[in-house]
Design a protein around this nucleic acid. Structure first.
Lengths: 256, 256
DNA sequence: CCTCTCTCTGTACGTCGTACGGAGTTGACT
DNA sequence: AGTCAACTCCGTACGACGTACAGAGAGAGG
């Protein structure tokens, strides 16, 4: 499966689409659709079947029009995906007022984690140039609000937000992709492991890799058991926030 | 652009390929190629032109054979990518003997960061089921060695390794994808921003988004300037390791 | 009514992974 | 030596993809 690249379309066309500033045409037949409708349909398909099987033809079919009609509303697939992304980010909620910085960052991380699980396809889009839509702007604002007034510089505030976001994303990635691989191979992790285990046992020497052998077994049991992939997320989140806490403490205490 | 999924091929076939245990055939014409050669060629193409434009036909062309000949050595594209991944991981070096846990984890993170920049396509492969090849096994072992004997449980050791790896990956992802989008649009970030800025200024209200406006400008200047994308990596790495340090301290001091 | 603009559609091109079947080559066995 | 089975390699073909292009039909302004 493949990674779509965000921000590869014409910048201005994409921004117009993101902010919904297309003027209504004065002449010609009534449009059957709206860009909004196309985006909604595309997200629905991507949620259900993944980004790989999302095609312009399938979106069109779902909407009861021909493939090429879609191009009346949307310049291309690239731009469509940008808008899908921004829309999805719109589902995030800001941390509650009055929450401390740590609770606020936890809220943000948990929100992203859940979002990526609702919309797994988001993790397949490389946001080298993030779609500067209304929802992404909103999100950036409340992320910064979470770390305001703690004695951090502007650049540090940005870096902390990026760190938490990056962590939530990479953590969700593991969880989501594991499930995704299972879905697309029709093979659970257990079935896969059952097929692979005898071979691995034959080929990997436990004396050469004692730690990997011991820890891998322990971790495998842990994740296969009741704890699940959420464990790595909770563990990592605590460590990352402890690290941020150390930074904040060093700023509050000039001796640090 | 798209994300290839690792581990979607037949497990046993893939493992045989990874560990190179195909027995030499006794009969039939001498093979022109080896699996190794195909993997090497594929990595070269992916490094130079990305994973999207890597096709079986192009690999074959480069090797002077027909497209279908490739399938004599490799079951399919999925399995080929798994082997490419494991091979690339083989470029990593273990931390020097005697390094402290922090220096060792830094070595590991910096190694991954550099590796992903050398082989940007690795970030387009979703390793939900990581290819259990010799190099990945080796890598896992020296990662665990870095956090051995610090009073952590087996599961915690695994989690710390995953945290550092995840951080390095997500951090490299931003840097690599930014460059990649520039390459594939033929548009530098500056050109893109020049095209987008007037529109953004018109549509984003600075009074509604005061922090985003201020911090975004500051961060933009910082990253556009001499500091570059390595800054976010260095900043995040320090925070993550501080977080790990707090954990280790709490284990060493039973009062924690 | 005429004409201009806009919507919608069918066809077509070049790409992809790879299934299939056949042609040619080699070693093992009789 | 002759035969056969295993093996490599290749040409063709299928059904997908994004989308360029050109044309048909619709509706409003003059």
């Amino acid at each position: 499966m493949t990674t779509e690249f965000s921000g590869t379309g014409d910048p201005v066309r994409t921004l117009e689409l993101l902010w919904g500033v297309q003027e209504r045409p004065r002449r010609g037949p009534r449009p059957k659709l709206t860009a909004e409708e196309i985006v909604r349909t595309a997200i629905g398909l991507a949620d259900a079947e993944g980004l790989d099987t999302l095609s312009m033809r399938r979106i069109a079919e779902r909407l009861g029009v021909s493939a090429m009609s879609i191009y009346t509303y949307v310049p291309g697939k690239s731009e469509l995906i940008d808008v899908m992304l921004d829309r999805a980010y719109g589902e995030l909620t800001p941390p509650p007022d009055g929450a401390g910085w740590r609770a606020a960052l936890e809220h943000i991380a948990r929100g992203s984690w859940a979002l990526f699980h609702r919309h797994p396809w988001m993790l397949q889009v490389a946001t080298g140039r993030p779609p500067l839509g209304p929802h992404l702007v909103e999100k950036y604002e409340f992320e910064l609000r979470a770390v305001e007034g703690l004695g951090l510089t502007d650049v540090e505030m940005d870096s902390v937000a990026a760190l938490v976001n990056g962590f939530a994303e990479s953590s969700a990635r593991v969880s989501v992709h594991t499930a995704e691989v299972g879905r697309r191979t029709g093979m659970t992790d257990e079935q896969w492991w059952e097929a692979a285990a005898p071979f691995v046992a034959k080929v990997v020497d436990p004396e050469r890799y004692p730690l990997g052998h011991r820890v891998g077994t322990a971790a495998g049991q842990e994740y296969g058991g009741a704890v699940g992939p959420g464990h790595a997320f909770e563990f990592g989140l605590a460590r990352v926030l402890d690290g941020v806490e150390a930074l904040i403490a060093s700023r509050a205490d000039p001796a640090g």
